[in-house]
Amino acid sequence: MAGAPLFLLRAPGGTLPLLAVLVDRLEEAGELLPVPAAPPAIAGVTEVRSVVLTLLDPAALPGWEPGEPDAGSGPGLPRCVLRLTEPWRHLAIHVPAGSRLDGATGPHPGVLTPRRLAAFLADLVTPAGEPR
């Protein structure tokens, strides 16, 4: 994992370090539609270029470091989504307005990896398919 490229998503309320291989692209988000009875980790669904994406709340993901990130320069991003790579192309991480996305190089403790994300998503659903 040493030297693996990663992104630091600096959002209001904290920072999410994630391996760059998880990220397909950053895109501006459309209307966010909340989903009743969804687990808190799911921020809602949105449309990006005619594709419906399920948005994950970065603050609920493994590796989230609470705290106000460095202010940085400029106004930050508009509300965006970080679209994920295979096998999660129907998912994206919600990037709240004012966030910043910086590149970095690992190792970084607690970084979100494909394995951690897979385990996290599996944990949202019990084997019987019922919400936990």
Partner: peptide, 23 residues
Amino acid sequence: LGPPLASVTPFVGAAFLAEGSLA
């Protein structure tokens, strides 16, 4: 919608409405 949302809620999809919003 695909997993995990379609597995943990009674919602299995989303549709664009002619009015321009999602449902």
